[in-house]
């Protein structure tokens, strides 16, 4: 158990520092801290022009969605980065428990995604005058963590698929685009075609965005119990599928000697 915890916490932290290339301030600040705010401002102004929704609606939607930026790329690099640094075979040759190994890598990514999403709210408050009841802040913080968890689960899936494909950044970018279009971040779900609406129900972010908008306008956490539970269930499902795929591709890679080859 002690070894499991050491691999989970220490291994996860070291892996994050080693493989998450954005950890340098010169990359981290512009990409993960300022980037989400510029996205929020852009869509808020576009929303004003389209006469669609208030600035607050866009601030909440885009800030929550920005958790996917750190989560998808973070998990993608946490797995694919090993291949770039040619350490994937060494890591997978160890007898370490795979759950501790890969879930440990997910934890710092999750925390980082929540921080990224929260900066969007700060940017929205500073540049667009976004305000919400102070009493709602803890509930919103919890929702950001849950959204980050669900996005990290999806990131695990992206990372697993990255063992088979060469370009994880492309995969992560495309997945982010799907979340941006489908999940009601900038277009109300009922205004999207029915098939897109239905697809959104099975994606992370959708339910977290809906719940966050309610909470930001003063609703209690209890009143958004259903979307919260759905978001958590989706996060668990993506995490499990991602983990299962990782094991499958690891097994295949070992058998065919293709671990270091995309």
């Amino acid at each position: 158990m002690r070894t499991w915890l050491r691999i989970f916490f220490v291994g996860g932290a070291i892996s994050f520092r080693a493989l998450f290339s954005w950890i340098r301030p010169s990359i981290y600040i512009p990409t993960l801290l300022i980037g989400p705010t510029t996205q929020i401002v852009f869509f808020a102004y576009l929303g004003r022009t389209a006469h669609l929704k208030s600035d607050s609606w866009f601030v909440v939607g885009n800030a929550v969605q920005s958790a996917s930026l750190a989560a998808l790329f973070g998990m993608g690099f946490a797995i694919d980065g090993e291949r770039w640094t040619q350490t994937l075979s060494a890591v997978l040759a160890t007898p370490a428990n795979r759950a501790a190994l890969f879930l440990g890598r997910a934890l710092p990514v999750l925390a980082n995604a929540a921080v990224t999403a929260s900066t969007g709210f700060v940017g929205g408050a500073l540049l667009l005058g976004f305000r919400m009841p102070w009493a709602s802040v803890p509930a919103l913080a919890l929702l950001l963590v849950l959204a980050s968890f669900a996005c990290t689960g999806l990131g695990m899936l992206v990372g697993a698929v990255g063992l088979r494909l060469r370009d994880v950044p492309i995969l992560a970018n495309l997945t982010m685009a799907v979340l941006l279009i489908f999940c009601g971040v900038n277009v109300p779900l009922d205004k999207l075609p029915r098939w897109m609406h239905m697809a959104a129900e099975g994606l992370p972010v959708t339910h977290a965005v809906a719940a966050s908008r309610e909470v930001a306008s003063g609703a209690s956490l209890a009143s958004v119990r259903t979307p919260i539970l759905v978001e958590v269930a989706l996060g668990c499902a993506y995490l499990l599928v991602g983990f299962a795929l990782l094991r499958l591709f690891e097994e295949q890679g070992r058998r065919h000697g293709t671990l270091d080859r995309a």
Partner: peptide, 14 residues
Amino acid sequence: IFATIAFYMFKSGG
């Protein structure tokens, strides 16, 4: 992708 979002936003906004 961005064009799609913008189109939907303008259509939704009437």
